[in-house]
Every structure is written in C-alpha cells, then in structure tokens.
Design a protein around this nucleic acid. Sequence first.
DNA 1: TTGTATGCGTTATCAC
DNA 2: GTGATAACGCATACAA
Lengths: 336, 336
Amino acid sequence: MNIGEIAKRAGVSRSTVSYALSGKRPVSTATARRINEVIDELGFRPNASARALAEGRTRTLSLVIPPASSRLTDAQLGFVASVVEVAATHDLDVLLSPSGGDHDRSFERIVTGRRVDGVILMEILLDDARVARLEQAGLPFVTIGHVEHPGASWWVDVDYAALIRRCVHHLADLDHRDVVLINRSDELVAAGYGPAVRSSAGFQEAADARGLTAHTVYCADEPAAGLTCFEDIRRRWPEVTAAVTINEAALPGLQQALHRARLDVPRDFSITGVVAGRLAEGFHPPLTAADVPAEEMARLAVDLLVERIADPSATPRNALLEPAVSLRSSTGARRR
Amino acid sequence: MNIGEIAKRAGVSRSTVSYALSGKRPVSTATARRINEVIDELGFRPNASARALAEGRTRTLSLVIPPASSRLTDAQLGFVASVVEVAATHDLDVLLSPSGGDHDRSFERIVTGRRVDGVILMEILLDDARVARLEQAGLPFVTIGHVEHPGASWWVDVDYAALIRRCVHHLADLDHRDVVLINRSDELVAAGYGPAVRSSAGFQEAADARGLTAHTVYCADEPAAGLTCFEDIRRRWPEVTAAVTINEAALPGLQQALHRARLDVPRDFSITGVVAGRLAEGFHPPLTAADVPAEEMARLAVDLLVERIADPSATPRNALLEPAVSLRSSTGARRR
DNA sequence: TTGTATGCGTTATCAC
DNA sequence: GTGATAACGCATACAA
C-alpha cells in the first residue's frame, strides 16, 4: 500500500495526500478529513526509504558505541538507553554502530551510505580518526568526550580532571597523605582515552598542590582485575589509605579485595571517584563519588546534534559537565 | 555523487556500474577495473535509501528494547551489545527502538514505515500485543522469551523454570528446608512477564517435590529494593536459610543487607539463582548460579531472524537454552 | 559483455 | 485549494 492507493480511495491526487500528511500546504478540511479516514482505515504510513530518498534526510541518528567485546560500563549503557529515549522524543530513530575495533565496516556503511542525518560518537580518543572521517564526509556529529584540541567543534563531556581534583582535595581534607588512583587500563591510556588521561593529570595536580604522595595503577575493566589491582596496591604501598577511581567495572573486585583484607570502609580505607550513580549506591558502603550524569549527557548530545543538523553552519557549541560529588559513606578521616 | 557520476567518468552505463557493484551480472575485467578505480578515487558508496527503495529491503534489523526508564539489567545490556555485534557480521545495521511504555510511536514507525527487514523483540510478556502487531504487519520477527502458547513461532529463551528447579534441588541437597525466591517486581509478574512467572512456577514445583517450605518476595529492579526485601525476609521468616533469585539489579542491595545482618555466605546463608555471569562473579562470594548466556542468545536470535527473512515461509524454529549452573562459592550446607 | 528503460514511493515544483 | 509531473539514486527486466 502506498500514497497512490490512498489518493485513489480518497478521490484526490497523490500530492494532496502528501500535503495533507505534511501540512506544508493548506488542504480543505473536507478533503483532509476524507484522506485521514482512508489512512486510518488502511493503517497507512509513508515508506521511510522513499521519503528519505525524496527528502534528502533519513530522520535517523547513528550512535557509535565501543565494540561489545570491550564490555560497556554501566554509565555507558545508561547513556545509550537515554540517547534512544531522547531521540524518540524528536521522532528520530537511532542506529547502533559498534566501532573502535577492526570492523569499522559498520561505521563506514553509515557514514558514506547517507544512512543517517547525524552521528553521536562515544568514547573518542584524544586524537580520533573517526572525527576526521566525519568532518571530511560533511556529516553532522557530536562527540562524547573532546579531542585534545577541540577548536570549534560540537561535544559534551564530563570534566574528569576537575572532578578528580575535587576528590583528592576531599581526601586531603580528611587528612589522607598517601593516595592512589585506580585508573582504567593502560592500553586505554596509551591509546589516548581522554577521561583516563585527564583523570591522571587532575590527580597528580591536586596531589602536588596538597603535598600528597600519589600513586597510580591501571586496571582492566573487569571485577577480577579490580581484585588483583587492589592486592597489588596493598603490597606495593601499604601506607596508602585512600583510593580514587574512575573504573566502574573494577568496583566489585575492589569490594571483594577490601573484604578479604578485612579493611573496613571508611574506617580503615577511603574510596571515592567518578562512577555511575546506580553503582555508587550499590557499593557497600555507598560511595562518595561524582555521579556520571548519563541522562543529562544524552539529552545534551541529542539536542546539540539536532541543532547542528537543522543548521549545519551554526556556531559550534559544547558542554563540559561538572556534576557534584555526592557525599555518601565511603570516605572518612585517616586513622592514626 | 551518485552511480550516474561514476558511470560517466568510467565511460559506461549506470547499469554496468550497478552490476559491477553487486556482481549479479558478469562484467569484463577491464571495465570492472576502470569502474573500481573511479569508485575508489571518489570514495563512492551507494545511497542506502535509494537502494532500499529499489530493492525492497533495508539491510537493517530492529531491536526492540524495554524503555530506558525501566533500567536495563546487565544481562539485557550484554544482549543488546551482542546483537549489534552479530548483526554486523551479516552486514546488517541495528535500529534501536524503546517500547513497552507509552511511546510505542517508535515501534509503530518502524513496523509500518518498512524501516527494517525484521525485528527482535526483547522482554515480551506472556500475552504481548506487539507480537500480534508484527504478525499482522507481516514483518519477520524473533522474540526473546516466548508467549504463553507459542504455537508455531520463532523465539529463543532461557528455561527459567528448569533452572530455578535445579537451584532448588541443589539447595535441598544441601539440607536447606526453608527457602525464598527473590523474584522481580510484582508489577512485572502481574503484567505476565514470562521469566518471573515461570520462575515462580518452577520454584514452587521443586519445593513441593522436595518438601521444602517456600516463600516468595517480589522486588523492584534496584539495589535499594534488594536491601529492604532481604530485611523483610529476615523479619517475616527468620528460619529461611537460602535464597534463589533472578533479580540481578537487587544483588548489590542484597549484598549490603547480608553484611548488615552479619550473615556470612555461605556459612549462614546460601544464595543462588539465574544471573549474568559477570555479575555472579562480581558478587562476594562469587555466586553459584546459572549464567544467562546473553551472547549465545544474541547469536541465535540474529541467525534465526536472518533465516526467517531469507525464507518467510520456512518452518518456525526456536531455542530453549538451559545453561549449566556454575558452582561457585555462595551455597553451602545448612548450618544446624 | 553492455546499454536502455522502467519502477520503487515520496516530496516538491510547477501549473491551474 | 488541487493536480500533473519531475526529481531522488538505485536495481533489474528487456534488448542488443
């Protein structure tokens, strides 16, 4: 069934049906009613491909996610769900595309096949080839995270450096002198993953400012790694009394390590960092941490992208979020 | 840039370019080479909308997910990522569509707009309107979970009843006499959510068979609910020594409640159930549980769907998975 | 082995 | 206020 069928049954031309649907041209109330009756009766909806072809836009966004092999963290997953949700409020569909590994086939298909009107790029590196690719293709896009020299570009990010600094200051205020940063994997840092790199910088900076002794460990995104990492820390720097982390996936392992070492949090050891709110609350005891504002980031990203699509020559905008550190129960004064 | 442009530059007709691309008609090596040169030089890729319109298929699947408001569980999220991954191996893109709440706008758009070649429907209810809708629309689909009377349909599911029975027998073997099922929310059960309903049935069945006293609590999908649920259990039935659960999201809260009650697992209390492997391993101590095989389900679902799309009249197939219960450290003999 | 012509279902530009 | 009709870019049946 197509628009011609509707036209025939309503006794009008195809263009009239089209205009009745889009409202881009006045249609007499009588014919509009007749057309709508037929449409309702037959349950007609315009063919999306035909419409996209004629209109030059697909009413679809692409969300580029890290490959499934590198399992998504809780914050990332919340973000994906929220993006879909927000896009739906704009009547936009979202096409998922795993990328970052080898199969950038999917990414290429989307970029060159004009499959979407715009792209949201998750987990970008400080120097990311896909950014250049999108620019070259002239496809509107917004990145989650920002490249090293963002210049005039569209992005939304969390200010990891600032948040981690705040965490360190908080620990310093509680009289901790030896602290450790549980970062994400060293491969990620080596690849130039912004949050990891900027957290490192912020950590060092604040530690220096407060005269703390600062150590860093790199930890794979999985519980088991969290366990061994923490044991490593205890072995190498037994004097450390507090940890800052951005590694959500390692949290369960950390929890386990703490338990094994018979360390009470926060009496014997303090923990803080940047973590999805749900995870922070799930920790025992609930984590004093900056909650990654996944929903807000999603809303901002989609809104920015919609804006950029509507006006490709608009001046670039961005948002650097600095959510509050929620005081819960995982940090306390250093025990003498 | 379009196929005509390529044809002109290569000095051939448009159809020849098209055939060179699809390989559906032999093309002399000489012209093929010339065409490919031009294509590479200009970085040409056929317009997906035009191709979809002409070909009558979109090379896109839809994955219908629960609305973000009802936060996805770990197992669900692993499933989403895997579906995208597997679809990519078939050169298929995946369109995400939240549904189940009110905004079935997205769902309707996809179904009637011929936006996709097939649909994977997650989290279906025992009696699900969307199933009927898809059947009526004549759109190939595979469901995750099966309706009450599946008849001849395409689906993949986990045999919750059987797995929960196995868990109960395991507990009975360990001499537990009073057990509780920590189910998902009562709304979900009331709505007719298969895994919740079937787990209940299996639980009751096995408990009866072994002469155990069985209780059930319904628990919202969040850590806080897990905490209060467990305290509730302790208050109402202090004699209970073991729990079976399918509620992943409640796990952190459960953990916390156990700790607060100073209950050692498995010495004082045993826990088992059906849980995503990653979560089971993150628990402390690691959970003896049936791991939801998200990747395998994803692979099966996509493969079945691809098969059904290729041959809509093929005889329906389905898969009822019964993953092994991994013995870890959270169950032990009842303490006398 | 290659070219021509038509159709896919809309939108939008004319014309009336 | 409404109708023809030409794009949109590709696939394919039909010719040669």
